[in-house]
């Protein structure tokens, strides 16, 4: 299952550094893609696999920090490891605040970087899985009729069948039919299950950490 093999993207304008990084990453059995500039990376169509980004801070054109902001603005949540040959504290603080995984100063120990990659990839894998789950739940939710959705939402908010029937002006029996059909469609085993699913669906954009 090659597609699911985690991917490490390296964006650095220094050819020798990025090639050395690629060689190091390949030596630990990960896939690596290298880019000479942020633009190059943005134009590339990313495969849908757990990915982490190694980003040089200073680059001609769009800098590493700029790229981080752009990705964040576009709601692309990739774990980022910054590397820089000339780092200062304000810069690293800013990067970390923006959600960077790690901020490494060149030259760095290989293990430091690999650990960071490991961590970043793991985090993206979780995010990836979560995202896949949410996607499937949403698909199920989409399959509900408008009335069923209404009923499910009211159930999740803690209303009783009777209250629901009174609120929307239908019989208690009809509410029960809608509820059981929705439970079936949402693949919810119990009421608690259904409530959890609805919660997940209500906070889709919330950051993983």
């Amino acid at each position: 299952m090659t597609e699911m093999l985690p991917l490490v993207c390296i964006v650095d304008d220094d050819t020798s550094v990025r090639d050395a990084l690629r060689r190091l990453i390949r030596s630990v059995g990960l896939r690596a893609e290298v880019f000479g500039s942020a633009q190059e990376f943005l134009q590339w169509s990313r495969p849908d696999v757990p990915t982490c980004l190694i980003l040089d801070v200073r680059m001609p054109g769009i800098s590493g920090l700029d790229l981080q902001r752009q990705l964040s603005d576009a709601d692309i949540q990739l774990p980022i490891i910054f590397v820089t040959a000339h780092g200062d504290i304000p810069m690293s603080v800013r990067a970390m605040k923006m959600g960077a995984v790690e901020f490494l100063t060149k030259p760095f120990r290989d293990q430091e970087l690999l650990d960071a990659i490991q961590f970043a990839v793991e985090r993206d894998r979780v995010r990836h899985l979560r995202q896949a789950e949410v996607t499937s739940l949403r698909e199920r939710f989409e399959s509900l009729t408008p009335r069923e959705r209404e009923v499910v939402e009211m159930v999740a908010s803690g209303m009783l069948n009777k209250q629901i029937a009174a609120r929307i002006g239908i019989t208690l029996n009809t509410v029960k039919v809608h509820r059981s059909r929705a439970m079936e469609k949402m693949q919810a085993q119990s009421l608690a299950d259904l409530i959890k699913i609805v919660e997940k669906l209500q906070t889709p954009a919330r950051k993983v950490s």
Binding site: D14, V17, D19, K106, L113
Partner: peptide
């Protein structure tokens, strides 16, 4: 820069 490449 070159040192990073060397170490890596």
């Amino acid at each position: 820069q070159p040192l990073t490449a060397v170490v890596t």
